[in-house]
Each structure stands twice: as C-alpha cells, then as structure tokens.
Write a protein that binds this DNA or RNA. Structure first.
Lengths: 148, 148
DNA sequence: TATTGTTATACTCTATAACTATA
DNA sequence: TATAGTTATAGAGTATAACAATA
C-alpha cells in the first residue's frame, strides 16, 4: 500500500514557500516581481519568441504581451523584429536587464546559500544530488509539462 | 572562501517552481489560487483574527479583506465576530472549505509523492531529514521573518 | 487556412493611504 | 490615542475571446 507519510512532501512545500518568499522579497527590493525575475532568467541564454517564452513560463501568450510590455518599458528587454517573418519577434534581454538579473541572482544565492550552510559539506552535496534526481523525475513524469 | 557552486541553490529553486506549478495547476482545477489554498491550510488547525492571518501569509491586512471576502462568498470560510471585542472577528474554515482543502492536499501529495518515488526509501528518508534541517535553519536565520 | 502576436475585458491579488468603529 | 478591520484606489498578473497581420 503506497500510503506514505506526507512529511517529505510537506517539508518540500514548506521549503519551497520559504525560498519563494525570499526571492519575492529580494526581487521587490528592486521593484521586480518573481515572474519578471524568471523572465530575465530565461532570457539569460536564449532569445525566444513570444510563444516559446510563454511555454517556458507556462503562461498564455496574451499574458506575455503585458509582461514584456512592462519589462520593455523599464528597459530590461527588447523586442527584436524577425527579419524572415514579419509577424514574429524575439525577446532579448538588455545589458541593464542582465545586470539587474545578476544582482538579484547573487543576492538570492547568497541568502539561500547561508541557509543551506547549516548542513555540512557532505550533506549539501547529497542534498544537491537528491534534489537533482527529483527534478529529473519531474521532467520525465511530466504532468505539468505533459499536459500540453 | 565561501564562493560555493550555486548548483544546490539552483536545484532547490528549480524544484520549488516545479512543486508550485503543480500545486497551482491542481488548485486551478478546483477554481482556487495558491493563496486561497494556503489560507485554507492555515485555518486547518487555527481560528485566527485578520491580523494574525495576515502575519501568517505575510500580507497586508488590507489584502486579506478581499481574500477572505472571496473565500467567504464561496462558502469556504466564515467571519466569526468576537464576543469580547466588537471590532474583531476570527476566521473559521467551513466544512466545505475543509473538504476542498483536503481534496486538493491529497491530489497534490499523491502527485509529488509519485515524483519523489524515483528515490528509494532510504534516500527519501534522508531527503526529508535534510529538507527539515534547512527549513529549521530558515526559521532560525530569519531574514524573511526577522525583517518585521 | 494556420500562425504570431496584440487588444479588449474581466477577475484575482497586492500595496498604500484613508477611513470607521471600538477599545 | 491605539487597535481591528474595511474601503478607495491603483497597478501587476492572469485567462478567454476576438482581432490583425502575415505566412
């Protein structure tokens, strides 16, 4: 009977809320939302179109228009018209956006890193491996992504 | 030099987004938002006033009025006037709210449990312990909570 | 016809500031 | 005066549906 105690699941969600709250607070200190931070993060090594971006963020394309509008208005991203398809554009992070993204990432990493440093080196390594495996299983087991 | 590779932090955030996306999808299937689910969760074993509820959710009290309004309109919670203080009220989850909360919690737990079952029993136990410790360190190191 | 993206509309969520009523 | 809570207002984020322009 796979009727396991939910303490692991509860713990994982508790940790998720802690991490997200911290990300949210740090982002807000720079007048950004979590979604905007994610947007900039995705653009770090990609120059996707609106549809691809929507897929990455799991949002409707119409939701992206406003999201990108606001980011563009702040000079964080640019719409680059596609030369081959006059309907399409790709979204590119600006130097300013990249910088802001980096500042936030560093602050968040420093803070969360301090958190995980209650664990000794060996345990941190082990935790990283375990978390990595669960993430991989999520990609395989889909559901959230498989739905579309 | 504490300049650690950020792979653990990245992994933790990646996992957080996966979990939140799943919670969000399952909640949406029941026409609830993540915040509403958290609200019901907090009320599972408490009957707090608006201010206490705001503190738990890390929201302004004014944000709670609407939140509770919408939950009350759907019959998920009730405002119980305090007999001793005519300004105050406590928020109580209804039987319907409790039931909905349970249904969602079970669906989420089942799904995430399936995810963590890529790990063998021993690793799941270990993961639970490590996650628990990091959560505890968050409570100690504050920052998110210490700010207020 | 199909695809890329935007616009119109409506709702939830959130904060700040001002307010009401009670303590 | 101080506290519990609401209201007014504004803005971000999101979805659905309809639309425009291009393929």
């Amino acid at each position: 009977m796979p009727k396991p105690d939910p303490s692991l699941v509860d713990g994982l969600f508790q940790l998720s809320f802690v991490l997200l709250a911290r990300l949210s607070r740090i982002a807000a200190e720079h007048d950004l939302s979590v979604v905007q931070v994610r947007l900039l993060g995705i653009l770090r090594d990609r120059e996707p179109g609106m549809l691809e971006l929507a897929r990455h963020l799991e949002l409707e394309k119409s939701s992206l228009s406003g999201l990108v509008d606001r980011a563009e208005k702040r000079g964080l991203v640019e719409r680059i018209p596609s030369p081959s398809d006059r309907r399409a554009a790709t979204i590119r992070v600006t130097a300013q956006g990249r910088k802001l993204s980096r500042v936030i990432a560093e602050a968040v990493t420093a803070e969360v890193d301090a958190l995980v440093h209650v664990l000794p080196e060996a345990d941190r390594k082990r935790l990283a491996v375990l978390v990595e495996r669960v993430c991989a299983s999520s990609a395989t087991l889909g559901a959230a992504s498989r739905t579309r």
